[in-house]
Design a binder for these strands. Structure first.
Length: 215
DNA sequence: GCGACAG
DNA sequence: ATCTTGTCGC
């Protein structure tokens, strides 16, 4: 049993964060992906649920579930080491790679600017957007209608994303670029593909994930 | 030093 | 994340 080396993990995150590319999404939007996760502590297993949708009709074109043994506990700020490896394994089984992935968690919006979405984005060199359901940093509440947003900043005051109301009367999302997308892409694409609170691929991946360890 | 802290 | 029924509102 080797105890987790926090300093080493932080240094790795710092190195990977330097590799993040913030740039407009260049490829056409044919497919869009969503990834969510579920864990069973009793079984000691963690699962990734990946969904790929047609970007126009929002029909499922690809679906992958992959289960691994849990090798890491949940620690705020280190989620990528728990859920990242399962996603990267599942990604290899995807037959129709999407133009962009919506990931359940943060991208840039992270104490060291390397949330789960940025981690998997850099590791696999794919465009990713982080969509978190709760905040890492203090934030200003956007107006209570769909499309309203505020700038989301880290503790130093630098922008790391947006606090976005994807649906009127519902709690906002914390949206941040993961990799190979711009701030504007992260904002507009998340809003564009959200009929309910979560962007549609993420919502479906969430349903799929929560099924895995039930019954 | 203390509390807060994605899932 | 998860434990958990009915209930209120659009």
């Amino acid at each position: 049993m080797s105890p987790f080396n926090f300093d080493k993990a932080r240094r790795l995150q710092d190195i990977l964060a330097q590799k993040i590319r913030l740039e407009p999404l260049n490829r056409p939007l044919k497919f869009i992906g969503g990834a969510d996760f579920a864990a069973s502590e009793t079984q000691g297993k963690i699962a990734a649920a990946l969904i790929v949708l047609d970007a126009i009709f929002l029909e499922i074109v690809d679906k992958v579930i992959l289960i691994k043994r849990i090798n890491f506990p949940y620690l705020p700020g280190f989620l990528c080491f728990r859920e990242g490896p399962v996603f990267l394994s599942a990604l290899k089984k995807i037959k129709f790679p999407p133009s962009v992935w919506f990931i359940d968690g943060n991208g840039l919006a992270h104490p060291r600017h390397l949330g789960l979405a940025s981690f998997v984005g850099v590791m696999a060199d794919i465009p990713t957007i982080g969509c978190a359901k709760s905040a890492f940093f203090p934030y200003e509440e956007p107006d209570n209608f769909r499309g309203s947003f505020t700038i989301y900043r880290d503790r130093k005051g630098d922008q790391v994303g947006y606090c976005l109301r994807t649906r009127t009367g519902v709690k906002p999302l914390f949206v941040s670029p993961g990799h190979k997308v711009s701030f504007e892409d992260a904002l507009f694409l998340t809003l564009e593909f959200s009929r309910f609170r979560l962007p549609e691929p993420l919502r479906l991946a969430h349903f799929l994930a929560r099924q895995i360890f039930k019954s």
